[in-house]
Structures are given as structure tokens and as C-alpha cells.
Amino acid sequence: MSYTFQWRPVLRSLPEMLWGASVTLEIAIMAMSVGTALAILLALAKRSNLKILSRLAGIWIEVARNTPALFQIYWIYFGLGSLGIGIEPYSALVFGITFNNAGYLAETFRGGFSAVPEAQIRAARSLGMGAVPTLWHIVLPQMLRVTFPALTNQMVWSILMTSLGAVVGLTSDLTGVTQQLNVVTYRTFEYFFVSACLYYVMSKICTIFARLLAWRLFRY
């Protein structure tokens, strides 16, 4: 192998890359929280008796699950751009991952909702609780407990998905920063290796944090 590794420039630009990692986390957390809220609405809409509502939710879920995430980001970035809605790579990425997260999580939540016994809902309603309080106090806590592992996976998943921003020209997230540095220095392997390590650390921290959170929230 006639290749000389040069790690020093990479170490020198580590602060920049860490800053990029914080942007990555920011995007992932945003997309995940909005995506979870949307997914709950989608799962409810899918179960609703209003045909049009459940049809629309079904289309969202199936498109999100049956096309590539990169395609969804492209569609938002280039497609909406051509309609005259100018959109930055950053927001295109956030919207794209949110759309994707919502679709995948809605399918998970649909299973989670059926895990909550129907009798509990009837009991809550007969005690005089309204539909929304029943959902909020009875159904959602149990549903989220059942689907918590899937939520954790999806969070890791959205951290990894943020790397797609570089393809539509985002330069502020970890992959974007790495790509910028790579274009300037041509130390492709070194820069992307360090960025791979940072992604690994981020997803491990996320998993460990989720495990601690689950232990804190769900123990009896």
C-alpha cells in the first residue's frame, strides 16, 4: 500500500466536525419529535371511520415506506423548488426526514394502538372521560411504552438519515462538513473515517440514553 495517512489535519478540524455533529443531532431530534407527533395523528387517521381521512393517511404511510428517503428529500428539494417554493437544503432535509419518520412510525403505532385493550377505552369513557383525555391519559402512555424500542431504532435511523443532506448540498451537518473538508484537502479516507466514528458514537449514545430513559420511565 503506497498510501500515507495524514491524521493531523483531521484532528485540527475536529472542532468543526463536532459542530457539524451537533447540527446533525439537532436535525435528527427535530425530525423525530415532529415525526412522532405526526405519526400519532396519522395512525389515528388511518383507524378513523372517515374514509377520506384514512385513505390520505394510507397514502402518506405507503409512500413514505415504499420509496427511498433520498427520493423523498429530492422531491421536496427539487420538486417544491420547481413550484416556486424556494427551499433550503436544511429545511428540505428536515421535512424529508420528518415525512419519512412519520410514515414508518405511524405503521409502528398502528400495531401499538391495537396492543391497548379495547375494554380499557370503554371503561375510561364510561367513567366520564372525554375522547381526548382517554387518548392522552390511557391509550398513549401504554402505546408509547409498547413501541419504545421501535422509537429508539427510528431515532438512530434518523441520525443516520441526516447524512443524506450532503447529497442535496447541505454543508452544515456532519457529512456536509466532512465533504467540504474533503473537497479542500482530498484526504477522503481520513476525514470520512473520523466522521464514521462520530456517527457511531452518536448512535451508541442515543441507544444508551434510550435504555436509561426506558429504565427510568417504565419500571414499576
Binding site: L160, S163, F189, F193, A196, Y199
Partner: peptide, 14 residues
């Protein structure tokens, strides 16, 4: 735990 995009770039740099 590492984005596929990064893996592709690393493999490609080999």
C-alpha cells in the same frame, strides 16, 4: 450504526 453513505465513500476510497 454508521450511515450507508459514509460507508460507500470509505469503500470507494479503498
Amino acid at each position: 450504526s454508521v450511515p450507508l453513505l459514509i460507508q460507500l465513500v470509505l469503500f470507494n476510497s479503498f
